[in-house]
Design a protein around this nucleic acid. Sequence first.
DNA 1: CGAGGGCTTGTAACCGGTTACATGACCGGT
DNA 2: ACCGGTCATGTAACCGGTTACAAGCCCTCG
Lengths: 358, 358
Amino acid sequence: MADVSDRVAEPAVPRPTIPSGVTIRDVAAHAGVSIATVSRVLRRTAFVTATTRDRVLASVADLRFIPSPLGRALAEGRHAANGIVFPDLSGPYYADVLLGYEEEAGELGRSVLILSTHGRDAAPEMVRELAGRVDGLVLLGRTISDDVIAELSERGLPIVLLARPATGAVDSVKAENVESARALTAHLLAHGHRELAFLGDADRSPDTLERCSGFGAALAAAGLKPAAAVLGGFSEEEGRRAAHELLHTGLPDAVVCANDELALGLVAAIRAMGKAVPGDVAVTGWDDVMAARYAGLTTVRQPMRELGALAARMLDLRIRGEGGQVRHEVLRTELIVRDTCGQHQQTDQQVRQLEEYR
Amino acid sequence: MADVSDRVAEPAVPRPTIPSGVTIRDVAAHAGVSIATVSRVLRRTAFVTATTRDRVLASVADLRFIPSPLGRALAEGRHAANGIVFPDLSGPYYADVLLGYEEEAGELGRSVLILSTHGRDAAPEMVRELAGRVDGLVLLGRTISDDVIAELSERGLPIVLLARPATGAVDSVKAENVESARALTAHLLAHGHRELAFLGDADRSPDTLERCSGFGAALAAAGLKPAAAVLGGFSEEEGRRAAHELLHTGLPDAVVCANDELALGLVAAIRAMGKAVPGDVAVTGWDDVMAARYAGLTTVRQPMRELGALAARMLDLRIRGEGGQVRHEVLRTELIVRDTCGQHQQTDQQVRQLEEYR
DNA sequence: CGAGGGCTTGTAACCGGTTACATGACCGGT
DNA sequence: ACCGGTCATGTAACCGGTTACAAGCCCTCG
């Protein structure tokens, strides 16, 4: 501790300056009025004579004055910005959540700051620093610990948790997992599959944990035990790796994957090794990303954009003090049956395809 | 103009406050020192007695003080944040660019603000406002006009253009388009296709314009004329719409699409209508998104993450005043031959597949 | 013992806005 | 002519930091 701060840092970069340069005082001088009047004209916060107003507006235009959001934020005590924190940004899931969030937040007149923690140790500091720049924060999945959330929340920072179990008195939004996983697993059982494995790392995401537990519950209800679980992150690469592992230990009848990328990687690798999907092994994914449609992957669709958008709206309410009671929203999912889960009636498939592409 | 500002706005929301509340003055009082000393301890910008330092650090910990980035930014004249502006956020292309950008910017210690203009009229104002919150800006594609870019650039705001032709003395990064489109088109010609159409709206993206012109050049070199062009945005939906149009006017031998989503939508719709791809018509895409691999789409891969990351690095250099000469970087692309462009040697395909999935 | 110098610390100005309060002009009524 | 009230505008404090400069302390050297 002591030795950290007893050295003096260099002055670093040759002091940069905020561009633009023209301030409210320049405008005031140029228009021959006080800065208060300029502010009043621009914010329309009090009556100003028509002639004065015009003089000020002319000066604003002449000097191309743009009020500094910084000065504003400092004086007003608000940022007109909010943040969203991801564990990671890769993959279509996060991209779609962000898309929905940004769109809604933009509509509500707020700038959006993003941060992905990449599982770094410095995550708490990064989030704390971000917290100082925004009026509210959306936190996704397993980004930081409950302690930090509690700390920020106690400071009075509005927070919405997304795809993370509720903690303390904080709003949350998520898509349904347990029941959906149970339904998906039941579907596989109905196909006659009996030896089922789950692929995904429950420790790395609350969603995965819930999906895994729904999976287990469905098996238990059928009097079955899960085949040896396989760990794995969330990428196609890890799906392919899992394929090699499974081939070693012996293929189960079906593999329920924590997300589509894992499933797609798994399917591709299994087929590349000369085995058939769903013939030798059935596979399911989760999320219904674009590639899933083209790969014929059976999966569970969750409303990713809507998750982001809803989080943005809930956060906005909270920030404006109209949040009311703590809310915990759970959005519905939809089972999307395609080819990788096993044989279906021919007609079923045709109907589905027609619907899908109109 | 006059009537816009002669009404007084309501006070709006009950004045919110920035959370946290504990300021450097609180810490100073708690530790029995001046605010200057607190600042010095935290920034390690001057020597401070060990005992004083410890007292200050103890107070900082006790009060859980987090310096306001706002106050800092105002005093330092810098934000430690930069922005990136998208025309739109949907689709894997933007997501990947953002991913690369955020990762690199985070590494460089900068917060990231994002904005998508969605083609709104207010885009210039939105970008100007964003400009006041950041030390530098990356602008993607056709987001705002050259005037606004020039205006911001003249103010001294560091800017990097991404996937947008160079304008004025501003850095730019893009992936190669013209030559790549020419090569892709030549590949189709080598298959024996003679009547080729281009699908995409050249007015809506500089990239598309260049791809279209490379396409046209290759045809001209072969003494051919393009089949009636089809307009279309960038989504699968518009690809499907184009399929219906084409079927009306008569299918060409091949369709070169401005991006993968268009191509995927087109292929799916054509097949749903009972025609074969590539049998009746060959189709190519652009970007090599994940779904393209699973759909067997012939396409051109561009290094999307690297585009974002490089833009972040160039912007950082510019902000630190080490940018030097204006740079225009053009990254290489790669032609990815799969199934939708027509029949190949069987061996070729097998080799490719093996490579792809190891 | 006093001057000089190095080191630590405090004071106050500043960054760019917002706004409470004070001021002064102008109006109408008695 | 004077008073009171309304309205437009200016003055200055404030938001939360950074930092130039001044001041005070202690030590050393002549």
